[in-house]
Design a protein around this nucleic acid. Structure first.
Lengths: 225, 225, 225, 225
DNA sequence: GATGAATGAGGGTTCATTCAT
DNA sequence: TATGAATGAACCCTCATTCAT
């Protein structure tokens, strides 16, 4: 479908000094500018409702230029989602590495997770991906794999350490990690996704949710220690 | 220019010569036929990517006929989603009313819930709604309200009965109900939504998930009884 | 173009008592009802912008019935214009036959003419005919011939009598008749036709116009008598 | 959704990334080409019966291009009528400024006027405007105001000069100007408008008409001089 | 290399006309 | 006979993509 893509990896070409004249579509600043415009338009309107003209306008570049950097609308969209995913899931896992107590750590991570996933921008991005993932399955897979999945793996690894340390008693760590994450955003994630909630959850609400999540989780998996 | 030939409130009215109120689009079989075609197309492709021509073809009726039954693409879509929601969430709550023991009841309900929500059709429907709910907020609200919300309320009522009977000890019943539901589909819901899983979860997997959910839930909220 | 027309003349069939069951499209009341609906819609919106549905609604009959009485939209339109013309130009020429003095008679006729031709309904009808007369030339010809032309002929005949009586001295009576008619509506006809005037001319204005018309006309064609 | 790419006041504006104000539709030759095609189609068929596809074909440009230069069918039509009016009424008033005798001047002007207004193209244009002026009142007003009205004003000014010079005795100059103009095209204007005449009036006929008009006019308003 | 004017297939919608009831 | 649901061609308009400048 996307043969001939110009920017397969996120290669920004390390040898920009060797040749003054760059090959078409190799100016990272321009690329960023386009992606930035695309972000505003795609995330706000979704893939179909967004027009290349809108993006042209939002990015402040000409139509032709976009087509130099991206083969077509789809590829531009894919590149944007890739970027967006990286932005969203950056700096999410710090809480798991700070070495505080179990309850504190889980609480901090849970809050960060729930805040992130219910923030307006992230919600829109998720909706945009969900909307398209039937038509562009790769895109959904990639997004989940390098986004939520990564978080899950980190959490599972953390739980594994706790189990090994005797602080938790979990038979299926993978499952437990999913359980904790879902408990943290219980009730709110789907409500936000479907637009049933028009307001972003307050920090207080999220804290309450996560506090209960930690309690339930520890009631199930905690040890006497 | 000539709207108002449909059966809604905007019907012409006011013209003194209009003998009978024209009420077009009354044949339920035709209506069903159209909706059925719309389902195939909308659910498969989403609102934007679906064309009225596609639907025309899928439904086996002429374009004009669709516009006798539905004012425009949006109304057809809304009618379809309404239908779809009713179909999906029918017969979901029986498990809660069969009067078996707590563990059995929760397990039965959890399995029904998880099976339903991860079935291919229901997933596609959910994606379709999520995709559009920014542009048609009412639609998302309605879908959630009369779908998942209804299930949540039934479950909360059931939990309330158990608390009153001393079988559970829950301080925030509403929250607990969300927790149980999310525990039942933990891990799989998002994976399905983003298309990370291409295969529908097996019944075995769901049973495992729900069994764990019940255990965790009862560990947190069960009483000695 | 209109072969197969069902109602060539305005025959209302004199033998309606001979057979109880009428041939399709022969009920004069129904015909009138349809034409009445068509009038409202066609005259208000013009041929193209009017839809058969509008007419259906305005007439209070079914689509099928209209097509029993009239072969198609065009024929219905033609029949309506025919009717309209008859209505408009009825009782226009009485002033010419009352036997008063020249000045009085010309004034009375001129006023009647100018009032008629600038009345909102008549203006709309004229616009409707003018709009279509390129596409349906017959219709314009017929309308003019049996409408304005008829008035012109009556006026010319009247002037002829005056010339014969020595009350006027006119070399080209035909031309003089046109001149008088145009003098009566001078300035206002075109202004109304183009919608430059949004208000119908007042009777006072018309009287002034006609008074001047008579004066000019008599200055040119009057004799000492 | 993407309006605002035209050169009118609704231009996007406000998007901070829009570098240069995009101003599409700037090539006068192309614009002319489109208007030329539109002329052929609109003037021949009228607003409603003309399709944008017809115009596309007649102009030899693509559909999209038309929409770059004109926001929609209506705007294209308005632009065309504007153009048409300018073309029609250019060089109409020279006769009034050549400084010949009254009779000669009036005759020359009257002939020019009558020739113009009954020429096939001008007639069609007038019909087209009259047809639409109920639905687009501004358009009719403008056409009359800047077309016929302008001629009328020039004529009235000319008559005023003659009155001041004692060559004519007119109490209501405005009215007299209308009278002269209408006398010049007496009989033929309406006949042409309704298509009663299929042939354009001959120059001879018009000369006869105008000669009579001048005679009548001077009989009414002339002085001994 | 960058531009944006041009393209034309395809979008949603309307409506004159037909025909089974 | 009268009805109005059904038809599908044709309507106006949009937009992803190309290519001359």
């Amino acid at each position: 479908m996307n043969a001939g893509s110009r920017q397969d990896a996120t290669d920004t070409g390390g040898d920009e000094l060797t040749r003054k004249r760059r090959v078409a579509g190799q100016d990272p600043a321009k690329r960023r500018q386009i992606i930035e415009g695309a972000r505003r338009v795609f995330i706000e309107m979704g893939f179909d409702a967004a027009s290349m003209n809108d993006i042209t306008r939002a990015a402040g570049v000409s139509k032709g230029t976009i087509y130099v950097y991206f083969a077509n609308k789809e590829e531009l969209f894919e590149a944007l989602i890739e970027e967006e995913r990286q932005t969203i899931f950056a700096n999410m896992y710090e809480a798991l590495e700070r070495g505080h107590g179990v309850r504190e750590t889980l609480t901090a991570y849970g809050i960060a997770l729930a805040l992130k996933i219910t923030s307006p921008t992230v919600l829109k991005a998720q909706r945009t991906v969900i909307a398209i993932c039937e038509r562009m399955p790769e895109l959904g897979v990639r997004f989940y794999e390098r986004g939520p999945k990564r978080g899950h793996d980190k959490l599972a690894a953390y739980l594994k350490r706790l189990v090994d340390a005797g602080e938790l008693a979990i038979s299926d760590i993978d499952l437990a990690a999913y359980q904790f994450a879902d408990l943290c955003m219980t009730g709110i994630f789907r409500q936000c996704l479907f637009g049933y909630r028009t307001e972003t959850p307050t920090r207080e609400e999220i804290e309450r949710n996560v506090a209960s999540a930690v309690t339930v989780f520890l009631a199930a998996y905690g040890t006497s220690r």
